[in-house]
């Protein structure tokens, strides 16, 4: 299939507008929840994991629906997800090493 044919086919695909607006609504709600919980001091040590989960959900919504990993070829996920995992691992290991350094292991 050449790219003109793909373009023509794309024109006949159903619009995803509703899905995009719903995702935007979820992003707004999740952001509001994040800000709300950040002011609840009683949460103590639960705050950080809770914020990680909420921001992780927002992150996943954008990646899956706005960046189309949910709709697109799995090949793009194969490129992005390992890089993301590596990035998170680097942050965690650097934190581990440097915190131990500052605290004199």
């Amino acid at each position: 299939m050449n790219s003109q044919a793909q373009t023509a086919e794309a024109a006949h695909e159903p619009s995803r507008t509703l899905a995009y607006v719903v995702v935007a609504g979820l992003l707004a709600v999740l952001t509001a929840m994040e800000v709300w919980v950040s002011y609840i001091h009683a949460l103590g040590v639960v705050l950080v994991p809770l914020l990680v989960v909420l921001s992780g959900a927002k992150f996943a919504l954008v990646v899956l629906f706005y960046m189309h990993l949910h709709y697109d070829s799995w090949a793009f996920s194969v490129i992005f997800v390992p890089a993301l995992m590596l990035a998170m691992t680097v942050v965690v290991i650097l934190l581990f090493l440097m915190i131990r350094f500052f605290e004199g292991f």
Partner: peptide, 28 residues
């Protein structure tokens, strides 16, 4: 696959490491 999209995704993967390094430094 469209080559340009493959390139952009690879770029995004690399940029993830760039921001991870900045975020790690902030947290450290």
């Amino acid at each position: 696959l469209d080559t340009r999209k493959v390139g952009v995704w690879a770029f995004i993967g690399s940029e993830s490491l760039f921001f991870a390094s900045l975020i790690a430094t902030y947290l450290i």
